[in-house]
């Protein structure tokens, strides 16, 4: 019964992979080795496709692998299996948050957590900037500083930032504009 096994394997990934979508990657690699359901090559494809389509990367990867193992039902089952543990865990955490809402410890913990999350997201931003705006890989390969800067992308980044701050339109508007400009400017 492949569907049942698939569900079980992704349930385990959803339960043990802590820290977001990319944290599921080592588990998927192990799944490939242990079960032989899909090849290591598929993992590279999986990352490329998951990053270049809308939706959380972790979900995209689960659907992609499931789909390649057992067709359309496989993709659905793998995804639901991976998500189910966190839905249950988050509900439990929410319930206990409600109960301890008035505890001074919860407030103090968040007092430390909010700046921490800001730092974590700033770090994620640097990761995105290295790939999307700067040619960090080319710079590392050549060591020549001019290789780091792509003036068109830098200008576009600055323009987007000013427009976002100034007009405060819905992010979808800017994302759509980004796609069109990417095509026009052949980024």
């Amino acid at each position: 019964m492949i569907y049942l096994k698939l569900f079980w394997e992704f349930l385990k990934i959803g339960l043990f992979a802590v820290g977001g979508g990319m944290a599921t990657l080592p588990f998927l690699q192990r799944l490939s080795v242990q079960t032989g359901w899909f090849s290591q090559d598929l993992i590279t494809d999986m990352i490329a496709v998951s990053e270049s389509t809308p939706g959380p990367i972790g979900i995209n990867m689960a659907t992609y692998v499931g789909c390649n193992i057992a067709g359309i039902p496989g993709g659905i089952i793998a995804t639901i299996g991976e998500v189910l543990p966190s839905v249950i865990i988050v509900i439990i955490v929410s319930k206990s948050l409600e109960r301890f809402r008035n505890s001074p410890y919860v407030g103090s913990a968040f007092y430390g957590l909010r700046p921490a999350v800001t730092g974590l997201i700033a770090a994620a931003l640097i990761g995105v900037l290295k790939v999307a705006v700067f040619n960090f890989a080319a710079f590392q390969a050549s060591g020549a500083l001019p290789d780091l800067f792509d003036l068109v992308k830098l200008a576009l980044f600055a323009a987007f930032f000013v427009l976002i701050r100034k007009f405060k339109k819905h992010p979808i508007v800017y994302i759509a504009a980004g796609a069109v400009l990417g095509l026009v400017l052949q980024l």
Binding site: L129, A132, F161, Y174, I175, G178, G182, L183, L185
Partner: peptide, 12 residues
């Protein structure tokens, strides 16, 4: 190309 444009925007 479209994705390259989208990622610049997402960074901003």
């Amino acid at each position: 190309h479209a994705l390259a444009g989208i990622s610049v925007c997402v960074a901003a």
